[in-house]
Nucleic acid binder design. Structure first.
Lengths: 219, 219
DNA sequence: GTCTATATCACGATAGAC
DNA sequence: GTCTATCGTGATATAGAC
């Protein structure tokens, strides 16, 4: 699989656009800046992506695809719901920690009410479908756990919101989060610590009978 | 206190700017649009605020002041830490639910690494100080609860991040959150439900011995 | 596919009359 | 304190040569 294919112009553009959009948002980035960062002229950029909105949606779609790819296997096994929820959480945290821009891009996509009218673009439907798949996966898992008696009867929708906050917001919090935690959010140690904190929270918050540990690291 | 003083131009500007910045961010809003929404010419707006950054910081400062005003009393009493944490959570949710724009503005302030160089403006130091006061308040309360044996030895910083996610992100999630929850985020019922869900999560996630309920509403 | 040149428009901010 | 008019700049996007 890791055959070193030289990156196309399109891939290079998506890489630099992802970093820029994550940091400053859709409105805060200019196509000129993207083009220069990719080593192209502005018009060449418009040759690959017809508009700024299309570029943004392509970036978002790629991020969502990477996340979905990580989450899907964790739901497919026949393990117990609490076990699957642990794996799902680990996989989401890994996906968000792998690329520093993923969480920020995703958070922007979730709380910024599509200012550029995503529904008008066909590409926008792809991203919405990805989100629906991810959401129905975790919501279904929560329901399954409640029916199996492993989780208390919390609202799945509210619990999903809490999970998003604990993961996507955390890894999107950038300088603020680093100031609060006192170090990088993305170091292997910090990522492992976050997983343990969330899972411990989940166990004591969702399990009918409290569980002892979630694989504790030492700080 | 509720003497109907006619709103000044400055208040009107802050109101419309708050709504616009919350929805589309600093870069996504133009001074022309703010001026027209406030019923002024663009130059009149620049008479009240010397720059766009100063207007944005004034908006943010007002939002933070409203929140801090609500949170301070919950930490001042001599109640037990778990009791104070419940009251703090209720107060924060109330503050975020009162103005639809507060959560979005706050979330942007937390995860967008001050693109407009807040430290260069004297007003930016006011907002940073407000955030520090709020953070040290909740962090101190968590530490107090751990020392008193009411909370397990979770990382206060990680717990604060989870709390922010559960509250600020939730109320900032807009259309996405409403689609997930199946209704308004800000109705009295939805707000009460969110409080109950968070507090139940906190009790089972922080208490050394699990507590039964957090004042459950029915859906 | 990449380039130069250009069209069109909105931006933040200022000058100065009233 | 509000206005009209304008400055200088940079935005998205297009035309068309190579």
């Amino acid at each position: 699989m890791p055959v070193p294919i030289p990156p196309t112009s399109r891939d290079k553009i998506l890489d630099v656009a992802e970093a820029l959009f994550a940091r400053r948002g859709f409105e805060g980035v200019g196509m000129r800046e993207v083009a220069e960062a990719a080593g192209l002229g502005k018009s060449s950029l418009f040759h690959h992506f017809r508009s700024k909105a299309q570029l943004y949606l392509a970036v978002l779609e790629r991020v969502l695809a990477r996340i979905e790819e990580r989450l899907a296997p964790t739901l497919a096994s026949g393990a117990a719901p609490s076990e699957k929820l642990d794996r799902w959480t680990d996989a989401l945290v890994d996906a968000l920690a792998e690329h520093a821009s993923a969480a920020r891009l995703l958070l922007r996509g979730l709380f910024e009410d599509d200012a550029f009218d995503a529904e008008a673009w066909p590409e926008g439907q792809d991203t919405e479908r990805r989100i629906e798949v991810i959401l129905s996966g975790i919501t279904g898992l929560l329901r399954e756990g409640i029916e199996a008696g492993e989780f208390r009867a919390a609202s799945p929708a509210h619990t999903v919101q809490t999970l998003i906050g604990a993961t996507v917001y955390h890894f999107a919090s950038g300088e603020f989060g680093e100031g609060l935690l006192g170090g990088s959010l993305l170091s292997a140690q910090a990522v492992a610590r976050r997983k343990a904190e969330i899972k411990t929270f989940l166990h004591h918050g969702l399990a009918v009978r409290p569980v002892q540990s979630a694989g504790g690291e030492k700080t």
